[in-house]
Design a binder for these strands. Structure first.
Lengths: 240, 240
DNA sequence: CGCGTTCTTGACTGCTTTCAAAGATGGTGG
DNA sequence: CCACCATCTTTGAAAGCAGTCAAGAACGCG
């Protein structure tokens, strides 16, 4: 189980992702490695950050998945974003930041403090990596809005799976055409603005079209190119 | 026309908004005032920022409205966010930023360069105001996602109008219960993930329920409290 | 092996879209 | 000052995508 979530390479997901965003110096790597010695564990369904409460400080998701969600008071839930290993939570530049959404552990989550980027050290790639990471997050937000506002169920699921693949690949967690995906159909519904029933029917349609196999916590996209064309998917590239 | 869009107070929308976000020093105000001497004008339907192209630098919307949008290649359009006077565009901390969405002028738009916040001047409120502004923008994104994913048409329109009121009020552009709103129903549809036809029907329902009057480029919310309760609206307050 | 969660499926309802066309509005030029 | 045109608003009828309700099957954990 934990093996499944861990990166296949010997490098940590965070190192994989951050150095993909910006070249890291030896000193950056040392700081990251050191930070990863100071781990915190959170059980599934427990909150890492709670809406309206102060954010303690930026942390790296070393292992496990989480999601950020907002509620409608009558009980409806909307997932804003999924957080996968290697990504950061609680990043905020201003003083006394307060969370705008609740971040909850989906699986058992391991985090460590995000290593500080020396603001005066121009050679540091960490600061740049964080900045690019923030820009990426904004891009994912925009795409999620587009997904929810202008795509049907079939397109939403496909588009999201393709994005998820790219995000996991960035952390070294997706290589061939399958990857771990611990969301239940209920959660996928809350993410994609659908009911779990309709998510199920949509996945069935995708399966019957030979596009994907979604098994227990695992997704296989049989023909990524075909799927990409179907929903006009283009990778996020606001970065490089 | 221009009168309608201009703030009613003698203070500029930007000054009103930024000083609402964080107390500004005399020096901050001087810098802002100076920046507002260097105006650029953009005609309606012209792009201020184009997706995939480099961002030249942060600018303040002195007057006029704009919107950020993302397209689905087949022609569908999703508006990510509306930008009102006093708000900023092109804010990005990293080097060589590239736009993740296109920002287009909705009306004639007047902008000026965002005055630089001296990073070494702790007493400067501008930097803090920008940081809070960025956090607010994130909060608006999250709410927009919730709106699109988990609300029906009636709730989407109401919820958005209430948020719009609060945003305009922050720039000193909404006082009583009516305000300027230059979006066509087509654009509201693109923003709220609906067709213009359905936006029209929804507004009709809101009107028949005695909640709003939407006239030419102008909205009047007759009973804000009632509307708030109806859609469980709570103002964004991740900030203070 | 048993129980709770998750996945599947069917039948029916309903919100939203689509298509079409008729008013209203505002700006422009004669 | 008014006719005219483009754009925007409004409405109706019909179709479709997604939601709701319900129940059985499969799965996974202890």
């Amino acid at each position: 189980m934990t093996m499944e979530l861990a990166p296949r390479s010997n490098r940590s997901a965070a190192l994989h992702r951050l150095s993909a965003l910006s070249p890291l110096t030896q000193e950056d790597r040392r700081r990251l490695h050191q930070a990863e010695g100071d781990l915190t564990f959170v059980q599934p369904h427990r909150d890492l950050i709670r809406e309206g409460e102060p954010i303690s400080g930026p942390r790296v998701i070393v292992d496990g998945w989480a999601y950020r969600a907002l509620l409608v008071p009558d009980g409806r839930r909307q997932i804003i974003d999924i957080v996968v290993p290697g990504e950061l939570i609680g990043m905020c530049t201003r003083r006394n930041p307060v969370a705008v959404a609740t971040t909850t552990a989906l699986t058992r989550v391991t985090t460590c403090p995000a290593p500080i980027a020396e603001s005066d050290d121009i050679s540091s790639g960490l600061k740049q990596a964080y900045a690019i990471g923030a820009a990426l997050e904004e891009a994912y937000f925009c795409r999620h809005i587009r997904r929810l506002g202008r795509m049907n169920a079939y397109e939403r699921v496909s588009d999201w799976l393709l994005e998820l693949y790219d995000r996991l690949a960035m952390s070294g967690l997706a290589h061939g055409d399958d990857f771990t995906m611990p969301l239940t159909q209920e959660l996928m519904g809350d993410l994609l603005g659908l009911t779990s029933v309709h998510v199920n029917r949509t996945i069935k349609a995708l399966r019957e079209d030979g596009l994907v196999t979604i098994g227990t916590k695992r997704v296989r996209i049989h023909n990524r190119e075909k799927m990409r064309r179907l929903v006009c998917y283009e990778p996020v590239k606001p970065v490089f």
